[in-house]
Write a protein that binds this DNA or RNA. Structure first.
Length: 154
DNA sequence: GCCAACGTTGGC
DNA sequence: GCCAACGTTGGC
């Protein structure tokens, strides 16, 4: 099983939005970055666990845990000219963009701020993709050791 | 609001 | 295929 970290701007879609969503589930549309797409399309498996991360907000950090509830399928918002994430280059017969579904697992007892993760950036979390210099990827892998170490910070 | 990092676009 | 310009991300 793989582990992941997925960023969301809480103004846009927060862990509470996921918790209160119908079926406590949502589709992760709008990813328009090839590396992030490849993670979803090629590596995400049903049951994989995900750190839900709040970005671009007052206190960025990990706020909860979700699970991949449906593996990659075409992101239909790319086909809709009225959609914010419309991409005329994505052909329904050969989709360029994909999405997965995630389901709510739980909120952390207390969120783990980015600043806390950074405290371990030269030790246990030395290789955490999220902390790599200037990383803006919205979906990043977390290896098992990193996953359990981060959970121990909760 | 600033700005560094960095992915994408498009002219050549 | 190079690379400058441009747009976006996201911490601060």
């Amino acid at each position: 099983m793989n582990h992941w970290l997925m960023k969301s701007e809480p103004n846009d879609f927060s862990i509470d939005d996921l918790r209160t969503a119908p079926g406590r589930e949502t589709h992760w549309d709008g990813v328009r970055n090839y590396q992030a797409r490849n993670f979803m399309r090629d590596q995400m498996k049903q049951g994989d666990l995900v750190f839900f991360y709040h970005s671009n907000c007052a206190e960025p950090g990990i706020t909860g845990i979700a699970k991949i509830s449906r593996e990659a399928y075409p992101d239909h918002t790319a086909f809709n000219p009225k959609d914010k994430h419309y991409d005329p280059k994505s052909d329904p017969d050969n989709p360029r963009w994909y999405m997965v579904n995630i389901s709510y697992q739980r909120k952390l007892n207390r969120m783990i701020p980015l600043s806390k993760l950074r405290e371990y950036s030269d030790r246990q979390l030395k290789n955490l993709t999220l902390l790599r210099r200037g990383n803006r990827l919205s979906i990043t892998p977390v290896n098992a050791k990193e996953w359990f170490f981060i959970l121990s910070l909760e």
